[in-house]
């Protein structure tokens, strides 16, 4: 069985501080980590591999620095890695990366299962999983917490409302894994050296994928950042209980606390 896991990379939040007062982010140390939710997805794939015969392939598209993320994924247990990068791919947006990943997955071919993290921590982007499923024409289950396979049928526990649902789906299929669904394993001591020194990451450029700069033109325009209101100490709310309650709830929502 072949399982493919797309990997994304984000700026390590331990390397920067956010200052609402200056409306700026101060980067102390520019380092990148695997998007935590994608590690949850990789863990689902690797635990399926532990339970039976499976080959786990990781794939990433965008900037050349993704090489690092793919090697870490191999150290965690992935069997092979594909990196889609060149000057054009490095400059595209999330939609362009999705297009590249879809072409890359098609080119790898013969997959039974694709496992994707539901969203990215840096931009709350939750588009990739279902978008790929539509592109590849496969069944899809979202909000996944656990998965197991028997007789070619995938059994999945997914988030559903305030509870959960148990569902079955035939392969090939795509799962998007809920954030925090599991505790991803650490890179395996014996694999780390090999993953960083010996094993190959196969690299494809946009031409290999049949993509041109026009195909990858960004469909969105960045408009900067917004910051929560600065903390003000000792504000008093006055008025009727209904008025102060409404004001309080609005403030908490505005600050994204609830």
């Amino acid at each position: 069985m072949r399982i493919i896991v797309p990997i994304r990379q984000i700026l390590d939040p331990r390397g920067f501080t956010v200052s609402p007062r200056h409306e700026r982010i101060f980067i102390n140390r520019e380092e990148y980590i695997i998007n935590p939710n994608d590690k949850n997805a990789l863990e689902v794939a690797l635990s399926l591999k532990d339970a039976g015969e499976a080959e786990v392939i990781v794939i990433a598209g965008g900037q050349a620095r993704l090489d690092d993320a793919l090697r870490e994924a191999m150290a965690m247990g992935a069997d092979a890695a594909y990196l889609l990068t060149d000057e054009v791919l490095a400059k595209t947006d999330a939609a362009g990366v999705a297009e590249a990943l879809a072409r890359g997955i098609e080119k790898i071919g013969d997959f039974d299962l694709i496992v994707v993290g539901q969203e990215t921590l840096d931009t709350a982007d939750a588009q990739l999983g279902p978008w790929l499923a539509e592109y590849l024409g496969v069944a899809q289950v979202g909000g996944v917490r656990q998965a197991s396979i028997s007789d070619g049928v995938l059994r999945v526990r997914r988030n559903w409302g305030a509870g959960y649902a148990e569902v079955e789906v035939a392969l090939p299929a795509l799962l998007t894994v809920a954030s925090g669904a599991n505790k991803p394993r650490y890179p395996h001591g014996g694999r780390i050296m090999a993953a960083y020194r010996e094993w190959q990451v196969i690299t494809w450029n946009s031409e290999d994928l049949g993509l041109t700069a026009a195909d990858l033109a960004p469909l969105t325009q960045g408009r900067g950042r917004a910051f929560p209101p600065e903390r003000t100490l000792g504000e008093r709310l006055t008025g009727s209980p209904q008025d102060v309650a409404a004001e309080l709830v609005q403030q908490l929502r505005l600050r994204r606390i609830i």
């Binding site: 939040p13 921590l121 840096d122 931009t123 960004p218 469909l219 325009q221 408009r223 917004a226």
Partner: peptide
């Protein structure tokens, strides 16, 4: 506006006109 890093700040993004 999309919350970044769980709401530490937000990214503001517009659609391109041709979308």
């Amino acid at each position: 506006t999309m919350p970044a890093y769980g709401g530490e700040y937000s990214e503001v993004v517009a659609f391109s006109p041709e979308v």
